[in-house]
Design a binder for these strands. Sequence first.
DNA 1: AAGACGAAAGTGGTTGA
DNA 2: TCAACAACTTTCGTCTT
Length: 305
Amino acid sequence: MSSLEPNRCPYCGSQRLLRDLEQAEIVCTECGRVIETDLMDMGPEWRAFEADERTDRVRVGAPITYTIHDKGLTTTISYLDKDLASANITPDKRAQLHRMRKWHRRIRIYDARERNLAHALSEMTRIADKLGIPKNVIETAARIYRKAVMQGLVRGRSIQSMAAATLYIACRTCGHVRTLDEIADAASLEKKEVGRSFRFLVNEMKMYVPPLTPKHYVARLLSRLRMRGEAEDIAYKTLTIASELRLTSGRGPMGVAAAAVYVASVLTGERKTQREIAELARVTEVTIRNRYKSLVKNIMFEVHL
DNA sequence: AAGACGAAAGTGGTTGA
DNA sequence: TCAACAACTTTCGTCTT
């Protein structure tokens, strides 16, 4: 680590080196040359908003401190094609200046993007860790996010909500069932904000995101209620019939799933209260009742116990 | 007393002119 | 941009177990 870092400027021999962690560089204060770039920062992550973040924020993953990466110290190359004495310059020099400006601009855009990406990635990892979302989903999310950045879709929107939305898309496409609620919660964002970003991304990127059906939710509800076997069977059969009868379209899938689970609990005798199910499904009892009513009305339950 | 039921008013988001 | 609209929630009184 520090033994690998130079303590003497290779250009002028000076030992007055400045280790700039913000820029991840070592700079010689004598001749001003940058000696080392892309230093690894071994210190802890500085930003921590909650008590337990302070303890688990260690130097792993991408840095998220570089919100203002250059502290306003960027170089700009004048667009006046004049020299110091305001005299016109040769066509040769003009062309050179033009090239310099071009690359200067490109490099700045490039590392702004990288920084954005790094920030987003750490955000996504944080959310995913909280929810126990597997690695492959995070990677899918990262790919989608990178694409979004390249298409310029992230600019002007909060990185957090875009990161959360991307993660949600990844969950959907990978078949990993998570509600928008859960992800918004873990990201400490408003559901509607994440939802907006989600819809925006899907529209702009013309992605196909497979819809979530009630069946996706049923397994989770059942396992949280510790129900299996027969109840599982009944819930799935109910949903199959319900979707054939078009009772599910236009309805919130969670409400339908909750109702199916309730039906199953009643039919098998391992009765759960509506409130209990409603709480887990994050819908109200009234919604369960309404779905449940239409299920009962439209489906003849032939109970084989 | 807890749970289920249902009416009525309120909420936030979508849609279509 | 605005109003109509559908789905869902909140609230609350009543009925059932």
